[in-house]
């Protein structure tokens, strides 16, 4: 009788343990991507962004930008001041992006030659940012609900235990047919991402070269996007990051676009 009870308890314990393990193993692709999307982020951020464009011959072009970003909850405001090349110096760009589904970003540009702030239509998400290998969509936070996600496998990559998740866009005619992302298990950072074109061929590879924990936030500070079809690369580096400094609201106004740095 006693041994039968122990046996029952053991079976229950084993079942419970197996259930927990099963639940852990059954983390879905969607959940992983949601965890990446919801990774704690600073309320505001200031930094110097350098983009180095490298063509197949090794020739480089450098773009330098000072940027301020602030999350207001339902809206994220960003203002960028272009420092180089010299012919775009003092140009500024402001973007307000909204959580509300279907609401387009509001964008303005200040061109020093025109001396006025001009509202512009939102750039197409598939346009390349300043001639780099990053599209506007690559740089933004893509909503997890816009793709169907599938956990392909778990493997070690660059010494980190990673989930490998395939994401297929729900939208027809999207610029990528699918993406595959290597996500560090305990940090929820994408360490590598492959982008496949409409024919299913590998188009670009994003490699994270450096990520840092600053003020308790995991942030990517150096990444490289390689267009393997055109053998063109863009190295994106973020320096002098300042987080949660309570950037005043007036930073995201026409006044500052005109005044510049």
């Amino acid at each position: 009788m006693y041994s039968a009870r122990i046996k029952t308890a053991l079976i229950i314990l084993l079942c419970a343990t197996a259930g927990i393990l099963n639940a852990q193993q059954k983390i879905t692709g969607l959940k992983i991507i949601e965890n990446v999307y919801n990774r704690p982020a600073p309320k505001d951020q200031t930094g110097d962004l350098t983009m180095t464009l490298i063509n197949s011959r090794g020739d480089t072009r450098v773009r330098e930008i000072k940027q301020y970003v602030k999350d207001y909850g339902k809206v994220e405001k960003k203002i960028m001041f272009f420092i180089s090349p010299a012919d775009v110096r003092n140009t500024s760009f402001m973007n307000w992006s909204y959580d509300q589904e279907g609401k387009d970003d509001d964008q303005w540009i200040y061109l020093p030659a025109l001396k006025k702030v001009k509202r512009i239509s939102s750039d197409s998400k598939s346009d390349y940012f300043m001639g780099s290998d990053f599209t506007y969509d690559d740089l933004g936070d893509r909503q997890p609900s816009e793709d169907t996600h599938k956990l392909l496998r778990e493997e070690e990559f660059n010494g980190e235990q990673c989930y490998v998740v395939e994401s297929i866009p729900k939208e027809e005619d999207y610029m990528y047919s699918r993406t595959v992302t290597w996500i560090i298990k305990d940090k929820w950072i994408g360490l590598k991402k492959e982008f496949y074109d409409e024919d299913g061929d590998l188009l670009k590879t994003l490699t994270i070269k450096k990520y840092e924990n600053i003020k308790g936030y995991w942030l990517i500070t150096n990444s490289e996007m390689h267009n393997v079809q055109k053998d063109h690369k863009t190295v994106m580096e973020l320096k002098n990051l300042k987080l949660d400094t309570s950037i005043p609201d007036r930073q995201f106004t026409e006044r500052m676009m005109r005044r510049g740095l």
Partner: peptide, 23 residues
């Protein structure tokens, strides 16, 4: 001429007062 060359500078005093996103 380019737009920045068509507009001539003018000697003046310009005052801007800001109230939120209004000027």
């Amino acid at each position: 001429r380019d737009f920045d060359e068509i507009r001539m500078g003018i000697t003046s005093v310009k005052a801007d007062y800001y109230i939120g996103n209004n000027t």
